[in-house]
């Protein structure tokens, strides 16, 4: 199919006001009018080789996100993977792409546009939201654990001097486990203060665990204080299910 025939077939499939600009022997820039938040148009390139069509962002969306102080945290990455899979998009080292033929290039283009716009929106998944998602993700691990029936969430504890404190997860046992999810500097400070207050409040018969988002921007000093104050520290959520089960079993926390 020559370029003109190809463009005509594509336009027929897309059924929308798009402009197709040939930029290489077998590549075309698709002007959709959709933009990132700064007004730059979504970069979508159509590559046509051997009767195979591929629509790709050439990795531009992630490059666009990198202009800002943007970290692909574990939580953001998980959300991004969901965006990719729900739109039927494939990944190649940061490039979002979708394969199609001349008949279904329209729906394929729409899927890619949606995935690119949703990915760009990750920029606005601000620190507070990321923080809350991390704690939620951590809680999910406890909900799926072998001792799920021993867990309480966002539990308020009263110390021996009448002070009240909240822990993210409370695991019942002879020596209960107090768990603090730490996705940010502020939450690290809160957890540190709570652990100190619990001690001042005469609480001794418990274990404290901190689960720290290892991609969060937490000063070394605060992180060190939190880790040293807790009985057990886990970094990131990736290994947490196994480590958690092992720790709870070894310390006979929920099985006492």
């Amino acid at each position: 199919m020559d370029p003109e025939q190809l463009i005509s077939a594509i336009k027929q499939s897309i059924c929308a006001e798009v402009e197709i600009e040939q930029i290489g022997l077998h590549s075309y820039l698709i002007h959709t009018g959709f933009t990132y938040h700064d007004g730059d148009e979504l970069r979508i390139v159509l590559k046509a080789t051997d009767g195979r069509l591929v629509l790709t962002d050439e990795g531009h969306t992630l490059m666009w996100l990198s202009y800002e102080d943007y970290n692909m945290t574990e939580t953001r990455n998980a959300i991004w993977r969901k965006i990719i899979s729900s739109n039927g998009i494939s990944l190649d080292e940061g490039r979002m792409y979708v394969e199609c033929n001349t008949k279904d290039v329209g729906p394929a283009l729409n899927s890619l546009i949606q995935a690119m716009l949703q990915t760009a929106d990750l920029l606005f998944l601000d620190r507070d939201r990321v923080a809350s998602t991390f704690v939620e993700d951590m809680m999910e691990i406890f909900r799926a654990s072998s001792f799920q029936d021993k867990c309480e969430f966002n539990k308020t504890i009263e110390d021996k001097k009448g002070g009240t404190h909240t822990v993210d997860v409370y695991v019942h046992g002879r020596r209960p486990l107090y768990v603090f999810g730490i996705p940010s500097q502020d939450k690290a400070k809160d957890a540190l203060i709570t652990m100190m207050e619990l001690e001042l409040g005469g609480m001794t018969g418990y274990r404290a665990m901190v689960v720290i988002d290892d991609s969060a921007e937490i000063s070394k000093k605060i992180k060190r204080k939190v880790v040293n104050r807790a009985d057990k520290a886990l970094l990131g959520l990736e290994d947490t299910p196994d480590d958690l089960e092992r720790y709870v079993r070894k310390e006979k926390i929920a099985h006492a």
């Binding site: 933009t35 730059d40 148009e41 531009h60």
Partner: peptide
């Protein structure tokens, strides 16, 4: 920016 395509001043 280099030439990545269009820019639209919103």
């Amino acid at each position: 920016n280099g030439d990545h395509g269009l820019h639209i001043n919103k």
